[in-house]
Amino acid sequence: MLLDHYSDFIRALPSGQLAKEQLLVEELLLDATPSQAMKLYYIPFEYVNESAKVFIIGITPGFTQMQIAFQTARDCLNAGVPLGQIDREAKKQASFAGTMRRNLIDMLDKLELHKALSIQSSGELFEERRDLLHTTSVIRYPVFVNGNNYTGHSPSILKSETLYPYAERICLAELLAVKDALLIPLGKAVAEVIESFAAQGLVARERCLFDFPHPSGANGHRWTQFEANKDKLTRQIVEWFQ
Score class of each variant (00 low, 15 high):
R88W: 06
I10H: 09
A167M: 02
I170L: 15
D106H: 13
D87Y: 02
Q22N: 12
A204D: 12
H153D: 06
I105H: 05
F55V: 05
E195V: 09
K232W: 03
K39L: 07
E46K: 07
E124R: 15
E128V: 12
L182F: 05
E89C: 05
L113S: 09
E168N: 12
L3D: 10
G187L: 11
K91F: 01
T224R: 14
P14Y: 02
P155T: 13
L176D: 03
A12R: 10
C171R: 08
E26K: 14
R222I: 09
N219E: 09
T60N: 08
L111D: 04
F63R: 11
Q22K: 14
F9W: 14
Q120E: 14
D4E: 15
E27K: 15
T72C: 10
A228W: 00
A177Q: 07
L24W: 00
I157Y: 06
T162P: 00
Y41W: 04
Q236E: 07
F9I: 15
M100H: 06
Q71W: 01
I237G: 13
E161Y: 04
D131T: 08
G16S: 06
D180V: 03
V48K: 01
A167S: 10
A199Y: 01
R140D: 00
P165G: 04
L209C: 09
L133Q: 00
G62M: 08
M100S: 10
D180K: 14
G201A: 08
K92R: 15
K91A: 13
F144K: 06
G16L: 07
L182I: 11
R101P: 03
A90Q: 02
V193Y: 05
R101A: 12
T162S: 12
P213Q: 10
G152E: 04
L175P: 04
I56W: 00
A177M: 04
I43W: 01
L176I: 11
L83P: 00
G98A: 15
T135V: 12
S121D: 10
S196L: 13
F197G: 02
E89N: 04
L163N: 04
R207W: 07
G217M: 01
D211Q: 12
F144N: 09
V54W: 02
Q120R: 14
E26T: 12
V193E: 10
A37F: 01
A79E: 04
I105N: 11
R129F: 04
A73W: 00
V238N: 09
G80I: 05
V203R: 08
C208N: 05
L125G: 03
K159C: 00
R102W: 02
T234F: 12
S160Q: 07
G123L: 04
D8R: 15
P44V: 11
L125C: 06
K53Q: 15
A79W: 03
T135H: 04
F210N: 13
D231V: 15
E239C: 02
V25Q: 12
M66N: 00
E46R: 06
G80A: 11
E27L: 08
D4W: 04
Q67G: 01
N103Y: 10
G62C: 09
I68Y: 03
T33Y: 07
K230I: 13
A204P: 00
D180N: 15
I59M: 03
Y6P: 06
E46C: 07
Q200W: 07
L18C: 03
E112H: 14
R222G: 13
H221F: 12
I68V: 15
T64H: 02
L40T: 06
P82L: 13
S216P: 01
P34G: 07
E192T: 11
